[in-house]
Amino acid sequence: MAKPAPVIIVTGLRTQFGRQVIHDGLDFSVRRGEVMGIVGGSGSGKSVLLRTMVGLIKPSGGNISVLGRDIGSVRGEKRAQIQQRMGMLFQDGALFSSLTVAQNIQLPLKEHGRISGALLVELTDVKIGIVGLPLDAANKYPSQLSGGMRKRAGLARALALDPEILFLDEPTAGLDPIGAAQFDELIGELRRALGLSVVMVTHDLDSLASICDRIAVLVDKRVIVGTMDSLMHHKNEWVHAYFHGPRARAAKLGGQSAKSNAPARVAE
């Protein structure tokens, strides 16, 4: 497969809070159209990396180029333009609690898309349909939705402006296995249909195996990037433990064939 041009290029990224160094010299890139998973132990700075990539945290050193612009230094109108080409799904959706689901989706469409009237309502319905929310969810408030539905609604809002890059912070955390598998499928389908590049922080080995093209592992303040297969054979102790642990075996990563007698995944 030819390698398409990267949409995100991280070079020499250094993040520190006070004296605590989180990342020290990260170099990697995200290609157009791929799904990249970010994994790492608790406190290894996965969410921090995601937040730095979307420009919520300013890096202490190095730079992050998103869609050809340095996200750490663009300001004002240019920054807003870049921001509109990215969508972010926060862990619990981060929906505006005073607005209904439909209004949450309409907010970016109205503000940045300058869309109004009948088309606004139609596009809202399309987004709600695409993420698989039930129809009556449109007029509900976030507090009336379940966790899984809040994530779907958050995804619909992140997709409102048809971004090129989608950032997901632990999209399957807190979902039951059925819901998590459905969410994985949804991400895969959207990425194919909309040509999205996806960056997702996850702890979910099933997600990694089923939808991620490449995986960035944060270990010892550095990053190791590779496909699932190449990481399986990586020498780093933590990486080995991660991909060969009991849970990895349960997710059928550890070199076992799909024909093993472990129960099949619910989605399959």
């Binding site: 809202t124 319905d125 399309v126 349909g129 129809l135 449109a138 007029n139 249909a193 909309l194």
Partner: peptide, 21 residues
Amino acid sequence: ASQLALIGVIAGHARPCPPAP
């Protein structure tokens, strides 16, 4: 082909939501 695929996805999901009360 990709445009057709996208239109197909939209066609598969297009259902009008009930209007706000």
